[in-house]
């Protein structure tokens, strides 16, 4: 799983969010290291919807503009948990070998 995809799923793990909310949350989670652009975000969201990892939660009109909120599906939650466990295991191995664990 690519880092941007992992971070998008992580952003949605706390609850449903709209597009710009995800961009802001991903920037916050990654300490500003990852700045998602709109084209990249919507390519990733489309792929995640196709794979059944996220779904549309609701739509709102704010200032005459459409806001579509996305949320994790149960399958998306499971996949995120599996990826997070894998990262944790790899990170633990790296830290142990560096004598930093």
């Amino acid at each position: 799983m690519q880092e941007a995809t992992f971070l998008i799923l992580t952003a949605l793990a706390a609850g449903s969010q709209h597009g710009y909310g995800i961009v802001a949350d991903v920037a916050a989670i990654s300490d500003g290291r990852v700045r998602l652009r709109a084209g990249t975000l919507y390519s990733a969201l489309d792929r995640l919807r196709l794979d059944g990892l996220i779904e549309v939660d609701r739509e709102e009109i704010v200032d005459n503009r459409l806001r579509r909120y996305y949320r994790l599906t149960p399958g998306g939650g499971r996949q995120l948990a599996a990826e997070a466990a894998r990262f944790r295991s790899n990170a633990a191995a790296a830290l142990a070998r560096l004598g930093l664990a």
């Binding site: 597009g19 709109a38 919507y42 489309d46 503009r65 459409l66 806001r67 579509r68």
Partner: peptide, 17 residues
């Protein structure tokens, strides 16, 4: 077809940023 479904949504993200 993608623009019809997501065009305004992407535009909102672009303008907000």
């Amino acid at each position: 077809s993608f623009r019809r479904e997501h065009g305004d949504e992407i535009l909102a993200v672009l303008l907000a940023g």
